[in-house]
Amino acid sequence: MYLQYLPWLTLVLAFVFFITSYLWIKKLAKKNNALEILLKSVMANNELFKQQFVELHSGSIGMGKKIQQLESKIIKTQENQQNIVAQAPENRLYTRAAKMVELGASIDELMAECELPRAEAELLINLHKK
């Protein structure tokens, strides 16, 4: 009795299956397109980040070299400054007087040996006592 409807039922089921499959495939195709667009965007951003990284890396190398140059200039300047200070005759006199004070020299000894006025000799002794 129901066998007479079997071909129609099979046809309807096949039609429903094909429509459902078609809609499902269409939905997957849209998702696939969206994912392809997203992938292209990510790849473009990746390239941009690579370029920025290379620029930052080369910039940091340049900065490192510049810092090394500045450090060497500072060291050279400090050495020159020390040489200038050591070469000044009045500084040698005060350096000698300071060493004498450290060894316990008196005001009169400082005045005689270093040819300092009394006020400067007293000042040196007071400074080194602290």
Rank of each mutant, 00 (worst) to 15 (best):
E122F: 12
H57G: 00
L56K: 12
G64V: 03
I61L: 11
A97N: 07
L116R: 06
P117D: 14
E120W: 09
N80H: 09
K73A: 09
L110T: 03
Q52H: 05
I74T: 06
Q51P: 00
E113K: 14
L70S: 08
H128E: 14
K76S: 12
N83F: 10
K130L: 15
G64M: 11
N83E: 14
A112V: 05
G59P: 03
E79I: 15
L93F: 01
Q87Y: 00
S106R: 07
P117G: 12
Q87S: 13
M111P: 00
K129C: 04
K76E: 06
Q81M: 15
S41M: 07
P89W: 02
L39G: 07
I67Y: 06
F49A: 12
E102D: 15
I37Q: 09
L39C: 06
V42D: 01
I74N: 08
N33A: 15
S60M: 11
I84V: 08
E55I: 02
Q51S: 07
G62V: 07
L39P: 00
I84A: 09
V85Q: 03
A98R: 13
R92I: 03
Q78H: 08
I67K: 07
M100S: 09
M43I: 10
N126R: 15
E113M: 06
A86N: 11
E55T: 02
L127P: 02
P117C: 04
L48C: 07
G62C: 06
V42L: 07
Q52T: 03
N80K: 14
K40T: 12
Q52N: 05
P89L: 02
A44M: 02
E120I: 12
A86H: 03
L123R: 15
K40I: 11
E55F: 00
G62K: 15
K65W: 13
S58R: 10
H57A: 04
K129V: 04
K76Y: 05
